[in-house]
Design a protein around this nucleic acid. Structure first.
Lengths: 256, 256
DNA sequence: CGGCCGGTTGAATCTCTTCAACGTCCGTGG
DNA sequence: CCACGGACGTTGAAGAGATTCAACCGGCCG
């Protein structure tokens, strides 16, 4: 078989945009060989979505998917009376966008549409859904990668259900901080030294993520601060001396 | 190509257990041709798990997956101090079991293991995980089906996060009843006549699903009863005169 | 400068939980 | 046959935790 050989020959044909891509081997693109990367990259645009903007604005920009190359995106559900719940955060190198138009065609109880918004400024590599779906038909490994990503999201969603349903306000806030510490910078292996993170969203977003109010978020942050678990600078920069103590606070209410 | 022809020849070779299977064309098995069904069915055992039992008991029975042929299974997460959250219900023809050992090998913040338990008596078609994973390598369509099912579960999980995070106790209970009405009997198209369902679980399970206490469940059920939205017989049989009113109660607090 | 946005803090209120008592169903054993 | 015990469910009263409402602070931009 000359498959191996062919790949080598074409290696130099990796599209320039992809060669420069930091997350190329981590995201779903890791499943693609140079030919397929080229095929995808022909329909690819890079862009930066400013914090607060929707990732895929309605109209011509619907039916697109994107790989996140940097920043944080939030997925949220909105009720008719304005109540909101953030149901997930996405970090690099996740892919966002509805492949296989999941749920939309589905006539079940799933009725609240999901909106995807930039929590921080987000760098994207965006392409039409139809292209990625077509490549998936030819490259099962691509669907497999996407499948694995969705399994991870499902596990995370279920973990968060435990937080939403069964944890106290303080545990929720600690869980949120712990989540960020373990996801924002996927590179760092989280040594036991102090950890510094920048909160990627404002209090109202945190409240919508935790199923609480902004006042409760504020109070619990000062609560954690007074207990010496965290330090806060400029309202957005949070430092943990000991991440294990934070993890403990996320799992049992210290006030008891 | 004689592929079409060959399929026809082998049609009569559909394994007997599969021929008798009510959900054969709906579940993941719908992706398999007779040869593949045979390959899978060689490792297949049918069984009934009594209500309250774990679906895949530890030890020799780990590393198995099952198609649900009837009944309701509950997925739940347990905290070290005993607090519990049910993170999903599975109905026929869903498949349960961890394909690709999702999350377990993953060193991220996902740390609470998922347990799968029969809520009612559950009829299963069970097989080793390794077999289904091997067939998936050969039949991308099988992985595609599983992928779609997981996308549906993800949507349902996120919908439920909205319920857990942002709804009042009464809305939660109404949401639960509405969920059952739309899932327990997947056949019936839900005409606008009265709907009768049997609650597949006891109050403490409902509480763990909704992130409430059993007392609150009880109170809200009587609350809904006194408002004329539901009737309750024998503590388990619930009748809705008008399912649309129930849906409305699930989305806005009537007490306001 | 003035207004607005994001954030913090306090006091009152409300929803849900906790604790406790009681009711019902059902299988077991005297 | 009926008394007993245990699992499950309901109801009431008291209490805790989060929300609501309101005041206030600081930074930023027109």
């Amino acid at each position: 078989m000359s498959g191996e050989e062919r790949k080598d020959i074409h290696n130099s044909d990796v599209p320039l945009v992809c060669q420069a891509c930091e997350v190329r081997h981590q995201g779903v693109c890791g499943a693609l060989d140079p030919d397929q990367l080229l095929r995808l990259s022909k329909h690819t645009t890079r862009k930066v979505v400013k914090s607060g903007q929707e990732l895929h604005r309605g109209g011509e920009d619907a039916d697109r998917c994107s790989n996140i190359m940097g920043g944080v995106a939030k997925l949220s559900k909105l009720m008719s009376d304005g109540r909101q719940q953030i149901v997930g955060l996405q970090f690099a190198p996740d892919m966002v966008g509805r492949t296989f138009s999941s749920a939309s065609a589905d006539a079940s109880a799933v009725d609240n549409e999901l909106s995807v918004e930039a929590a921080t400024d987000v760098r994207l590599c965006s392409f039409p859904r139809s292209v990625i779906e077509q490549i998936m038909v030819d490259v099962p490994e691509l669907e497999h990668r996407l499948h694995l990503q969705k399994l991870k999201e499902l596990d995370e969603a279920r973990d968060w259900m435990l937080t939403l349903g069964r944890k106290s306000a303080m545990e929720k806030v600690a869980s949120f901080l712990y989540l960020l510490a373990t996801h924002i910078d996927p590179e760092k292996p989280l040594g036991d030294g102090p950890v510094v993170i920048e909160l990627p969203m404002k209090r109202s977003d945190i409240a919508d993520f935790l199923g609480l109010t902004i006042e409760t978020i504020s109070r619990q942050l000062t609560n954690l601060r007074k207990r010496g678990l965290i330090e806060i600078e400029q309202r957005r920069i949070v430092t943990f001396a000991d991440i294990e103590r934070l993890k403990a606070a996320a799992e049992q209410d210290l006030s008891k």
